[in-house]
């Protein structure tokens, strides 16, 4: 388990999402934390980029030969529709882009990176892939990966956690042992095996990471249920004839899931690091897919520049690593601030 799994840090969570939240104590404390605000702004910017990836890269889509334009059903004459909000293509590339839009367009096939030019405004990385395009669409890849893995982890975690906490007994023991096993194995190596077996694609990377993502949430929720069960008011409710199942679903789950959701969403940054690590080991999305980790991997052979010009290829490594760090930093700054707020005892 890593730090951002809620089981460690969330033991004292007491969410207060009530009316007048902007004026609430937690919110005021959050607003006083400049780092948290910075993180929030960074993430907002990334969300904007992810949503408008299509329009932001319209000039690349127009100028390179690529399948995205083909699959959108645009011809060379109608390709400028991508810039025009009254045309359907503009909205389609925002809300339902064809899979091929995630492939970085190429300016030639050479392994040697090319410096920024009119066509490739941030240069091309090894293999002629457009860096700017990869960064922009990579934002979507990062959100997809992060959101799906966390979402899946939460879903399974909530189901298994509540079953475990509600029924107890051998089911609880079984699930807890499975979770122990998951915590005990080296996740990265096993993720590598899974991706190698299932084949290289973003989907399979997501599957591999999801297999390990739910355990922390399940254990946290089970702990919450057990804790609440011990509380006096539950005994009181029981004495009044309430069933424990009802108690869990009416009182425990809504409270715990709220904090679980907030905390889990902050794990997205960590998940993106996992995706990037797999890509770096050559096991991420297929070659050419807009993915930051892969772009760092492409840059590996070019970091040292040329003799006498150590920074000849600076753009190849700088941009993708800068963007990954910025993205993860955004989540972690926000996450730290939120945890700080939630940890405070009134």
């Amino acid at each position: 388990m890593d730090i951002s799994s809620p089981a460690v840090s969330a033991q004292t969570v007491t969410p207060k999402v009530k009316k007048g939240w902007w004026q609430s104590k937690a919110m005021r404390r959050f607003r006083r934390n400049p780092l948290g605000i910075i993180g929030f702004i960074i993430l907002l910017a990334f969300v904007f980029v992810a949503i408008f990836a299509g329009p932001l890269t319209s000039s690349q889509l127009i100028n390179y030969r690529n399948n995205c334009v083909r699959d959108l059903g645009l011809s060379r004459s109608t390709v400028t529709d991508l810039r025009n909000p009254v045309k359907p293509a503009f909205w389609r590339i925002i809300f339902a882009p064809p899979g091929s839009c995630f492939n970085m367009p190429r300016d030639g096939f050479s392994e040697i990176p090319k410096p920024p030019s009119e066509l490739s405004i941030l240069g091309t990385t090894s293999g002629g892939y457009d860096i700017y395009y990869g960064l922009i669409w990579g934002t979507r890849t990062a959100f997809y990966g992060g959101i799906i893995v966390t979402g899946f982890g939460l879903l399974v975690g909530i189901i298994i956690g509540s079953i475990s906490g509600y029924f107890g007994g051998w089911i609880d023991t079984l699930f807890m042992r499975i979770i122990d096993v998951i915590f005990a194995i080296p996740g990265l190596v096993l993720s590598m095996v899974i991706v190698t077996i299932l084949g290289q694609s973003l989907r399979n990377v997501i599957i591999a990471l999801s297999i390990f993502a739910w355990a922390g949430y399940a254990r946290f929720l089970r702990g919450e249920i057990l804790r609440v069960r011990e509380l006096d008011f539950v005994d009181g409710a029981k004495a009044l004839g309430a069933r424990s199942g009802r108690l869990i679903f009416r009182h425990v789950l809504p409270n715990s899931i709220g904090s679980l959701l907030i905390l889990a969403s902050l794990d997205i940054g960590t998940i993106v690091l996992g995706v990037a690590a797999l890509s770096f080991l050559g096991l991420g999305a297929p070659a050419g897919y807009a993915d930051w980790g892969q772009m760092v991997n492409f840059a590996r052979g070019w970091m040292l520049g040329l003799p006498g010009q150590p920074f000849a290829y600076w753009y190849v490594i700088f941009w993708p690593s800068f963007i990954i760090v910025l993205f993860v930093l955004g989540w972690n700054l926000l996450g730290d601030a939120v945890r700080d707020v939630m940890d405070v005892k009134s």
């Binding site: 030969r65 190429r106 096939f109 392994e111 293999g127 290289q200 050559g282 297929p286 070659a287 050419g288």
Partner: peptide, 16 residues
């Protein structure tokens, strides 16, 4: 086969 960038380039040249 993934990782073989020259084979990938051949395929993309023909495709294009």
């Amino acid at each position: 086969n993934t990782g073989n960038s020259s084979r990938q380039a051949v395929a993309e040249i023909l495709k294009s």
